[in-house]
Amino acid sequence: WVPTKREEKYGVAFYNYDARGADELSLQIGDTVHILETYEGWYRGYTLRKKSKKGIFPASYIHLKE
């Protein structure tokens, strides 16, 4: 896992994603996520609506905010 280059990196989910394991994070369309790390097509972070739950999710489900 590699920390993100920018201190504040955010994105928005444009697909729903159902977590398949305890380390994964479920997403709903429109969720804003804070991205902490990246690795081979995956991000690690949390949604702003539930900051206490961190997990991994596919990068392809996220539109990055500039």
Rank of each mutant, 00 (worst) to 15 (best):
E40T: 06
R6P: 14
E66Q: 13
Y10A: 04
G21Q: 09
Y61Q: 04
T38V: 13
A59Y: 03
G11S: 01
V2P: 08
T32V: 15
T38S: 13
Y61N: 06
K9E: 09
A22I: 10
V2Q: 11
T47A: 12
E40K: 12
G30W: 07
G41W: 05
S60W: 07
K50I: 10
A59M: 10
E66H: 14
L64W: 04
S52K: 10
T4G: 09
K9F: 09
W42Y: 05
G30T: 00
Y10N: 02
N16R: 12
Y10C: 14
E37A: 10
L25T: 00
L27G: 01
D23Q: 09
S60L: 08
L48V: 09
K65V: 15
R44C: 14
A13Q: 02
V33M: 03
E37L: 06
L48S: 09
K65Y: 15
Y15H: 14
A19P: 05
L25S: 00
G11C: 09
T4K: 07
E7F: 13
Y61R: 05
Y15Q: 15
F14P: 00
K65Q: 12
Y39I: 09
A13L: 02
Q28V: 13
A59K: 14
D18E: 14
D23A: 08
P58A: 05
N16Q: 11
L25Q: 00
A22D: 13
S60I: 11
Y10H: 10
Y17C: 06
L48K: 04
K9V: 10
I29Y: 06
K50L: 13
L64G: 01
D18M: 12
D18Q: 14
E7V: 11
L64T: 05
I35E: 01
K9W: 12
F14E: 08
S52A: 09
G30K: 01
F57C: 05
Y46V: 05
A59I: 09
I62N: 01
W42E: 00
I56V: 09
K51L: 08
Y46A: 02
L27E: 00
H63L: 13
E37V: 05
T38K: 15
A22P: 15
K5P: 10
T38R: 14
F57E: 00
K9D: 04
H34N: 03
A13H: 02
S60V: 10
A22K: 11
A22W: 09
W1V: 07
L27C: 06
Y46T: 04
L36W: 03
Y10E: 06
R44P: 00
I35L: 14
Y39T: 10
T4C: 15
V12D: 01
E24I: 04
A59F: 03
I29L: 06
K65D: 11
Y61A: 15
K50R: 13
Y46C: 11
E37G: 06
E8M: 12
G45S: 05
K5A: 12
T4Q: 10
K53Q: 12
G55A: 02
Y17E: 00
L48Q: 04
E24Q: 08
I62A: 01
R49N: 15
T4I: 10
I56H: 03
F14T: 13
T38N: 04
